[in-house]
């Protein structure tokens, strides 16, 4: 009987421990590299060469992903590629880190490549609308969480890549 009582308590605990002074978000740090526009132009002139180049490029990226111990997460990062494609054509995406974080007023640290750090903190939680402040090395963004919408923040450069911080809702709302 005691065992079952303990089981019950353990099942109930998550619901009680849910605190209303924090919000849950998914945070990812993604490294991206831009395509060479000149190379694209040249390749577009020769469609056959373009196709072959793409095939070679994809193979190369996949191989590099395996060699670096990190798979090429193209499918997972496709929405990001699409969102950024409005302005720039990035061809290479690699996830540096990802986590599900419970963000409170004290803030949640995000490790960036090269030893830099960013923080996300809850500024306000009013009428079930959370206002978060994302502090990056060069900018500070204040925004309200929404059931839809991912926030992509350019966070600087690291070696040959651009660093992006991606903050998305804790779950997919219907």
């Amino acid at each position: 009987m005691r065992i079952f009582f303990l089981c019950c308590l353990s099942m109930l605990l998550p619901s009680f421990s849910w605190a209303a002074d924090s919000v849950e978000v998914r945070i990812a740090v993604v490294l991206v590299k831009e395509k060479d526009p000149e190379a694209d132009k040249t390749l577009e002139t020769f469609p056959d060469m373009h196709r072959r180049w793409h095939e070679q490029h994809r193979k190369h990226e996949a191989r590099r992903g395996v060699e670096e111990g990190d798979k090429l997460e193209a499918e997972d990062l496709q929405p990001m590629q699409k969102a950024l494609a409005r302005r720039r054509h990035y061809g290479w995406f690699k996830r540096f880190s990802k986590k599900r974080a419970t963000v409170g007023a004290q803030g949640e640290a995000i490790e960036l490549p090269g030893g830099a750090q960013a923080t996300v903190r809850l500024k306000e939680l009013k009428d079930d609308i959370a206002t978060l402040v994302v502090s990056l090395p060069s900018t500070e963004t204040t925004y309200q969480l929404g059931r839809t919408g991912t926030l992509y923040l350019q966070a600087g450069k690291h070696e040959e890549t651009e660093v992006w911080v991606v903050i998305s809702p804790a779950k997919h709302f219907r």
């Binding site: 609308i129 900018t139 925004y143 059931r147």
Partner: peptide, 27 residues
């Protein structure tokens, strides 16, 4: 039944339908 009844239906803080940026400040 208690767990299902008590657990939050939706994550807290997502009352707004869309994400909304308020300010972006360069440091």
């Amino acid at each position: 039944s208690t767990y299902i009844w008590m657990r939050p239906a939706e994550p807290v803080g997502y009352g707004s339908p869309h994400l909304s940026i308020q300010t972006v400040t360069a440091k």
